[in-house]
Amino acid sequence: MKILIIAEHKNGTLAEATRELFGLSLGQAEIHAVVAGEEVAPLAEPLGQLGAAKVHLVESPALAGGTGESLGQALGQVVPQIGPDVVLAAHTPQGRDLAPRLAATLDAALATDCIQLGCEGETVTARRPIYAGKATAEVEFTDDSLKVITVRPRTAKAPEPDAGRSAEVATVAVELSEQKTALKEIIAGGGERPDVTEAAIIVTGGRSLGSAENFSIIENFADTIGAAVGSSRAAVDAGYRPYRDQVGQTGKVVSPQVYIACGVSGAIQHLAGMRTSKHIVAINIDPEAPIFQLADYGIVGDLFEVVPLLAEAAKNRNGS
């Protein structure tokens, strides 16, 4: 079995979610990687050290400032040349955009956002969440078409790079037609803090914060532990946080190692976005709040009192 990993990168570095794909249990499969963009050759070395037997470089200036359309077109040409059985990408904004394009272009089977993936011999098994994480289901591939699969970030741990390994490197040419979509501008947001979809720890505040200013309590604590700041929809609707921080069914779906919900009641639509978090901590003044039914650890208390103490305790620990 030949598996092709689509390597996502930014500023010359591989995305962590791509590195994690090499940590999946892929059995004896022959692992290839494809990396598309401008000046991507230096990425062959880290990909080899992660376990790629062969790295395919797709160089085109059009891919640098392009949209999903150009990447989709490029890989639509390249993938058949490489001829894998499975194409793997991370379920990041880029992967979510690319996978269906590729699957439709190549008449492939598609399974997105998988949280389990295994390869044994010629058999691929994938499991994905459905109904916003209220259940999971196995994806049966009903024919032997190419399979395009995206895997939810943090599903596997990225392996340690092995400096002794290296990949064979090949260059693949693509011919891109004139693109219909044009990327006009990228507005950088965010600043220093990680995005909720990428962070290992998220500290989320709810309506009970009462104002945008009060969210500084959440931010301070998040910053001391390197966490992202999340928000319930009620806090977004009240104007305390930008929409991009919203976790839930109509916000972002996250799966961090630790999710710390402060003054969040735990409405079903909120749980839909975070129920697959590895460890859930709830801080709520109301012992009956539904969030405690999902939480692993709980503090019944006033967040205005507890959260600053958490920041202090974390700082003391770091300092010692």
């Binding site: 598609l110 994480g133 591939f141 709980g298 208390g301 507890v306």
Partner: peptide, 28 residues
Amino acid sequence: KTRLRNFELPPPKQPCRLIEGSPAEQAN
């Protein structure tokens, strides 16, 4: 090209471990 099968509900949650004590003790 695909069909979903072998649905599973998430395993039942362990009860939440409530951390007791004064706010400072809880935080620590």
